[in-house]
Design a binder for these strands. Structure first.
Length: 859
RNA sequence: GCGGACGUGGCGAAAUGGUAGACGCAGCGGACUUAAAAUCCGCUUCGCGUAAGCGAGUGUCGGUUCGAGUCCGACCGUCCGCACCA
């Protein structure tokens, strides 16, 4: 009996899988009749190394892929690299390596690391988004969308990251800081390329309803992000002379047109064009606008920020009453980026408006009366009333409830020609221009005569030049001596290439479709995409809940509408997995300590830590996501080296539900390693032939345990409850081990082990192969069909039913499954312990839940 | 402020409204060993009790139910997302 040696076993089986090409994806024809299943994990950025978080993500996907394979699905499980982006340029600037060399080197390194994990990936489909083969196709569809008007150019105020020297999308600004650099974002005016995601805003919200296998949380986050609101645009005509460009009045957006008769003033954002215009003549206004700009909508200072404003001196007319004049204020709480950047204020029914009105002593006029309130007694303190009620003080709206009032007000506004009902989104069009080198060149040529002209198809891909320098800040493409100087494809005149590159989120918004046929001449092979898409199970971190997952849904729709494929939702099932965390350790005087340097002890239930070398006692810190800065990182290689891949794969799945964070502990991985050995020991002890067991009852019990385990584990994998499935496997192994069926060659035992080898295969595939071979099976475990259970054997033959008296468990009775209620009642009532507890009481009622429980109500 | 999730032993966690704590970690006891490691066996929610057993127990308070960790309401706490969104 030899101890299981993963260092020999694991590479052997990986080679065998390779040699037999078992993970090569089968075409629909080859797979004849098998249903397809597309499993995909969010592809990694090639940062240089696979860390434990990657490992957990890819192992989860691999368990699904292997399980579905065994269950008879034709599986697609590919891998690629999200390879464009800033870190490559940072490396170039810091270390002088070329971004391309750095990236491909990292890919080679990480591919090798991933392969060590024994993943069932079809590596023949691999690509990186920085391959000209890939980004050239991206340029092709970009041009197609440009022709369709989904790509456009406009000057706008953009988020400028002063550290990365580039523009960021709204989605990439977090608390006013760049998502990658962490630098405070500045506002700049630039002409940029945009994708018209707002055209799909409604559809993107509607589509969420059909995504039954997405986490509710992610659907909500997307819905909130798109932020649809219904209301009205209303123009307030200027009283007297209208400022230049505002002949039609000042257009505001409101969701409460029913409260128009409660209007008190009209407010505009500090960066509203009108504020701009007025502050040029009025230093007081200019000073206020400047103050707002500085305070910025950046930080959490918003929370404490006081409502502030300044009167412009202008008045507008109320839309329903030309004689009613409302003052126009510039206010710091109005955002240019939402609606029209202008509002009408109804202080009685909006908290911000009320705060403002109280501060500047503006009128507060209630127009919504809560149910059952006397109009004479209804007064407002410091809290606006935003609830339901009947409109009053409102002329033609009097007596209507809020919803009817909105409709009536919109009707009137429309008939007066002053506006219309409108839907407004928080979502803005997606700015995709980045002033960076290491990205997909935007395939446009700017010609003074012809304007922006797409690069002709035969000139694609527009490749990045290799000879660039990173010694100066800014975009190296701008400094390249020749690259951008070209002839206009339209008129042949002197022209310039666009030097901006695409946001890397564009690269990742269609890669899943390219995997259907990564060698296709077209960006997307329609037949292949229609066969494989949607992705049946997508797995990744929740940090992409809005960014990547929203962009991918949008691009999929856009490309489908352009005829490239047929699917509208790219990801039918989404699973967001938790992170891998680790306890942190620090020196009393500060400074983090690597876990490998820490010795842990438990004395009288108290845990303590000390430094392995210096003996210095350490502080046990919080459990946090593994990160280099906290030094609480355990590299996958260390684990593979010590315990083998399988133990590592087992542990990352065993200790927590997959959607939750899992805490890495050395004890936990040792437990997984013990399990691997316990499983192997059973196979190692196996005899050759199948002979009848000596003990028929024990054999039957083992068979029952086997079929129960198959049922439970199968259900666990189906339901993404890997930790529960693993617990059932531990239980099963304990049962097999302690079963008195000691004849290692008995039929019942062989059946148990045959099932065990296949049940553990998705999680510990190398061990499963070794076990399968030990059993003398022909072929590999990876190709073996999933075990089926016999429902009769999986069911209990005898049940232990608890008997409760007044809800307290007092006894238990043994019955066969399916015993009729009346019979169970009799058995329960005649039980000695039950009788004892019922002494001196009358039985009022007996509830028997078949095969579950007996509850006797007595008193 | 708005929206959402969660709260169970020393720890990670299980429990279609039906025996709370499966499984694992840590701990304790034992076997094997000259010894240790490894391995194997047993115990391990808390309190009282030698034990059989009794009592308490899933953040707090209340409700629905024969029966609530699970459903409903209020509160407390933790985490996540959005945040002056008109």
């Amino acid at each position: 009996m030899a101890r299981y040696n993963p260092k020999e076993v694991e590479p052997k089986w990986r080679s065998a899988w390779d040699a037999h090409g078992v993970f090569r994806t089968r075409s629909p024809e080859e797979a004849a009749g098998k249903p397809k299943y597309y499993v995909l994990e969010m592809f990694p950025y090639p940062s240089g190394n696979i860390h434990m978080g990657h490992a957990r993500n890819y192992v989860m996907g691999d368990v699904v892929a292997r399980f579905k394979r065994a269950r008879g699905f034709n599986v697609l499980h590919p891998m690629g690299w999200d390879a464009f982006g800033m870190p490559a340029e940072n490396a170039a600037m810091e270390r002088g390596v070329h971004p391309k060399a750095w990236t491909y080197q990292n890919i080679d390194n990480m591919r090798a690391q991933l392969k060590l994990l024994g993943l069932s990936i079809d590596w023949s489909r691999e690509f990186a988004t920085c391959d000209p083969d890939y980004y050239g196709r991206q340029q092709a569809w970009f041009i197609e969308l440009f022709r369709q008007g989904l790509v456009f150019r406009k000057e706008s105020v953009v988020n400028w990251d002063p550290v990365d020297n580039t523009v960021l999308a709204n989605e990439q600004v977090i608390d006013g800081r760049g998502w990658r650099s962490g630098a405070l974002v500045e506002k700049r005016k630039l002409t940029q390329w945009f994708l018209r995601i707002t055209d799909y805003a409604d559809e993107l919200i509607e589509g969420l309803k059909g995504l039954a296998r997405w986490p509710e949380k992610v659907r909500l986050m997307q819905e909130n992000w798109i932020g649809k609101s219904r209301g009205a645009r209303v123009s307030f005509p200027f009283a007297g002379h209208a400022p230049a460009g505002f002949d039609k009045g000042l257009e505001v957006y409101t969701t409460r047109p029913d409260t128009l008769y409660g209007a008190s003033f009209v407010g505009i954002a500090a960066d509203h064009p009108l504020a701009d215009q007025l502050s040029r003549q009025n230093p007081e206004l200019a000073a206020f606008v400047e103050e707002c700009r500085k305070g910025g909508a950046t930080e959490a200072e918003i929370e404490t920020a006081e409502k502030k404003g300044v009167f412009t001196g202008l008045y507008v007319q109320h839309p329903f009453d030309p004689n009613w004049k409302l003052p126009v204020w510039i206010a710091n709480f109005i955002l240019m980026g939402y609606g029209t950047g202008a509002i009408f204020a109804c202080p009685a029914h909006d908290q911000r408006d009320l705060d403002f009105a109280r501060k500047y002593d503006l009128p507060v006029r209630p127009v919504v009366l809560p149910e059952g309130t006397d109009p004479a007694e209804f007064e407002l303190g410091d809290e606006a009333y935003t609830g339901p009620g009947k409109l009053y003080n409102s002329q033609f709206l009097d007596g209507l409830d809020v919803e009817a009032g909105k409709a009536a007000a919109i009707d009137r506004i429309e008939s007066l020609g002053l506006g219309e009902g409108a839907t407004v989104y928080r979502l803005h069009d997606w700015g995709v221009s980045r002033q960076r080198y290491w990205g997909c060149p935007i395939p446009i040529i700017h010609c003074k005569a012809c304007g922006p002209v797409p690069v002709p198809a035969e000139q694609l891909p527009v490749e990045l030049p290799d000879d660039v320098t990173f010694d100066l800040p800014g975009n190296p493409l701008l400094r390249h001596p020749t690259w951008r100087h070209v002839k206009c494809p339209s008129c042949g005149g002197e022209a310039e290439r666009e030097t901006d590159t695409l946001d890397t989120f564009v690269d990742s918004s269609w890669y899943f479709a390219r995997f259907a046929n990564p060698k296709a001449a077209d960006p997307i092979d329609k037949a292949a995409a229609d066969y494989w898409l949607a992705v049946d199970q997508y797995i990744g971190g929740v940090e992409h809940a809005v960014l990547h997952l929203l962009y991918a849904r949008f691009i999929t729709r856009a490309l489908t509408d352009a005829g490239a494929m047929s699917v509208r939702e790219p990801f039918a099932g989404l699973f967001t997995q938790g992170m891998v965390t680790h306890e942190t350790y620090k020196k009393p005087e500060g400074g983090w300590v690597d876990p490998t340097q820490v010795v842990l002890e438990t004395v009288d239930g108290k845990r303590s830590a000390r430094h392995a070398e210096t003996g210095e006692s350490l502080v046990i810190g919080d459990i946090e996501k593994m990160s280099k800065s906290k030094k609480n990182v355990v590299a996958p290689e260390e684990i593979l080296d010590a315990y083998g891949v399988d133990a590592g794969r087992l542990f990352v799945l065993s200790d927590s539900p997959p959607e939750r964070d899992v805490q890495w502990t050395s004890g936990g991985v040792e437990g997984a390693w013990r399990f691997v050995n316990r499983v192997w020991a059973e196979f190692d002890a196996l005899g050759e032939a199948a002979i009848p067991a000596a003990d028929e009852d024990a054999a039957q019990a083992l068979r029952r345990a086997t079929h129960k385990a198959i049922k439970a584990v199968t259900e666990g994998f189906e339901g993404f409850r890997f930790n529960s499935a693993i617990a059932r496997l531990y239980e099963f192994v304990n049962t097999v081990k302690s079963s008195p069926v000691e004849q290692t060659g008995s039929a019942a035992r062989r059946e148990a082990l045959s099932a065990l080898a296949r049940l553990v295969a998705p999680i510990v595939p190398h061990l499963a192969e070794e076990a399968w071979a030990r059993m003398g099976e022909s072929g590999m475990a990876v190709d073996a069909p999933w075990p089926e259970f016999d429902p009769e054997l999986a069911a209990d033959q005898e049940l232990v039913l608890p008997v409760q008296i007044n809800g307290k468990r007092r006894a238990e009775v043994r019955v066969r499954p399916g015993t009729p209620e009346a019979e169970v009642e009799q058995i329960a009532l005649s039980d000695e312990a039950v009788k004892r507890h019922l002494e001196g009481q009358t039985v009022r009622k007996v509830i028997v839940v078949k095969d579950r429980i007996v509850n006797i109500v007595a008193g």
